[in-house]
Write a protein that binds this DNA or RNA. Structure first.
Lengths: 146, 146
DNA sequence: GGCAAAGTGGGGAGAAGTGGGGAGCATCAG
DNA sequence: CTGATGCTCCCCACTTCTCCCCACTTTGCC
């Protein structure tokens, strides 16, 4: 389970260090996709494969299945850890999450957020904004076990 | 699993580079067919053979089987990678996907889209149009695991 | 303090993508 | 038969960028 919040930097080459605690779980590879609320999702390869396998059973309409395949598989990219425990985040994914440096190609700060079976990558600004905008009362009214 | 979106060019000779990440999976050959929604499908030879083998079990009516055989096998073409990792896309398939240069024989841009067990080749214009026309609400209502 | 692990940054070799020349072969017209 | 045309399949050349390796700094622990 991915827990915690980290602030790492994405360097000029688009590389971002993965928290050491996460690394063993994505040793066999990871899949990066555009997430909801302008962040990025990272799934361990095994988790991604399990989700992909579940898709076919869920969608029977072939037209919708084609659309979903194009959207999710076309929109995803495989990542591997380099020798320093980093992954490369392609430029077009950085744009989606607002992770562009002011000068265009310098290093950028990013928030890494554990979210159970995946973890997420946020621009610090957008993460703060998301926290401000969400309603604490929503939490309060939910039947949470915590 | 084929993942990701690439923009490559088809040169004046009809050659298109296959993304390096895809190459090992079509080393033993690939099959090119006209796809749904005016794109082209490319299957690894093994996948194509498995689908072909499954056909007979799915269609028992010999008349329909003949029709399907003529349609799918007649409309498909085998491709092999050249020494640079490219395949040749015959002219008649380029027409089907709208991959014709303005001047008739110059290079053309093409989108390569991973779609799980196959990948697809799109004209950039048609791919954009497809994305515009499809309904995101359809996605929202689906029980997706992502 | 000293050491190891974690995070950050950069240089350079080799791969990936692109383009073109030219030989070999078939088809078709003169 | 001869020559022109078009296509495939070899090469080779060039540019760009990815990835591998090395080095430095910071953090945390003994």
């Amino acid at each position: 389970m991915f827990l915690g919040e980290f602030q790492h930097s994405i360097d000029a080459k688009g590389r971002m260090a993965i928290p050491a605690k996460y690394r063993t779980r994505i040793e066999r590879g990871a899949v990066l996709t555009r997430g909801v609320d302008s962040c990025l999702y990272v799934y361990p390869a095994e988790v991604w494969e399990a989700k992909a396998a579940a898709l076919e059973a869920l969608i029977t309409d072939p037209r919708k299945l084609r659309y979903v395949e194009r959207h999710f598989f076309g929109g995803a990219v495989e990542c591997e850890l380099d020798a320093q425990g980093r992954i490369i985040i392609p430029a077009r994914y950085r744009s989606h999450a607002g992770l562009r440096a002011a000068n265009g190609n310098g290093p950028v700060e990013a928030i890494i957020l554990g979210a159970r079976e995946r973890f997420e990558i946020w621009s610090p600004d957008r993460w703060e904004a998301y926290l401000r905008e969400s309603e604490p009362e929503d939490l309060a009214s939910l039947p949470l076990p915590f």
